[in-house]
């Protein structure tokens, strides 16, 4: 499955075991992307949120 990178418009290949909400990386621009939805053979990608004040352990 392929989807368009929302940052650079490049083509991102989505692995078959990818699940919704997973973070992946665009091979062209290296942006971190979130797989928001998978609908059949179509995936919707958004740019991953940046670090927030209370993030991470």
């Amino acid at each position: 499955m392929n989807a368009q990178c929302p940052v650079c418009d490049g083509m991102v290949t989505i692995a078959p075991d990818t699940i919704e909400s997973e973070i992946i990386q665009c091979p062209e621009c290296s942006a971190h992307l979130v797989v928001e939805r998978i609908e059949g053979s179509h995936a919707v990608l958004t740019e991953a949120p940046k670090v927030e004040e209370d993030w991470g352990e």
């Binding site: 699940i19 919704e20 909400s21 997973e22 973070i23 979130v34 991953a48 949120p49």
Partner: peptide, 13 residues
């Protein structure tokens, strides 16, 4: 209970 799914959550799954 998750937000974005990181490599850590994939390992748990």
């Amino acid at each position: 209970l998750h937000s974005t799914i990181r490599g850590d959550e994939k390992l748990i799954l």
